[in-house]
């Protein structure tokens, strides 16, 4: 009788038939454990898959605070395409060859060929004919370099070194003539006392003051003489 050795499995070689060989018998408990494991796996694996899917969808929305922003066209600050000057400083001279210094926090022009500069928080320093200093502070202003004129807005405060000061909220200052005018109320102090009115036209150089409308003037020579300290220099206690 011939032995058919084709079915003999040589060691190490894959044996397609090995898988058909009967396996060792499994006990009921092992079988039950296997069933339970499969039962739980059927629940856990789909749940994990669902959670992963939901996380994948919600992650960009939950994580939007860090990197993303909402672009609302109407809240965009409208600015022209020109550059904004930071801490600009204008230095010039007036008709009497006295220096004119104008500095501001920021300045911009409405268009490239526009000659008016719109200033924010501006400070201007200049001098009268006799050299007495004038200082101008304003929240905002427009400087016309050609006409040598500053239109001042917001809290405007102009004072000179000879104890003359005015406060208003709108004024036009002519640099060469040293004339300041305005018609939305003014209050001020001078060696003649404190004053207030509705409209004003003040030639700072010539020291000519014209006030119109509801003029009030409080004059107290004692106040002034008392504040002169022994050294003779008036200390400014208003």
């Amino acid at each position: 009788m011939t032995v058919d050795n084709r079915y003999e499995t040589s060691p190490g070689m894959p044996d397609p038939l090995r898988s058909l060989q009967p396996t060792a018998p499994v006990s009921y408990r092992q079988n039950q454990r296997e069933i339970n494991r499969i039962y739980w796996l059927k629940i856990i694996v789909p749940s994990l898959a669902a959670v992963a899917l939901v996380t994948l969808v919600l992650w960009p929305v939950l994580n939007s605070a860090e990197g993303s922003f909402t672009l609302a066209m109407d809240r965009l600050e409208e600015r022209d395409e020109n550059a904004k000057l930071v801490k600009p400083r204008y230095v010039g001279i007036d008709n009497n060859n006295h220096p004119v210094n104008i500095s501001a926090e920021t300045a911009f022009r409405k268009s490239n060929d526009d000659k008016d500069y719109y200033l924010k928080n501006l400070l201007a320093n200049m001098q009268m004919k006799d050299g007495t200093g004038i200082e101008i502070n304003a929240t905002s202003g427009m400087f016309d370099s050609k006409a040598q004129e500053i239109v001042l807005d917001g809290a405007v405060d102009i004072h000179t070194n000879n104890d003359f000061s005015i406060k208003t909220n709108q004024a036009t200052f002519l640099i060469n003539e040293k004339i300041v005018t305005g018609n939305s109320g003014v209050s001020g102090a001078s060696p003649f006392g404190d004053f207030s009115a509705e409209k004003f036209h003040i030639d700072v150089d010539q020291e000519i003051i014209r006030l119109k409308g509801n003029v009030l003037h409080h004059y107290n020579p004692d106040k002034f003489t008392e504040t002169i300290s022994p050294a003779g220099s008036p200390d400014k206690q208003q």
Binding site: F192, F195, I208, G213, H217, P221
Partner: peptide
């Protein structure tokens, strides 16, 4: 010496 003055208009040549 405290003087209070009021008027419609005022012009001063200091």
């Amino acid at each position: 010496r405290d003087v209070y003055i009021s008027s419609n208009d005022w012009e001063a040549n200091l």
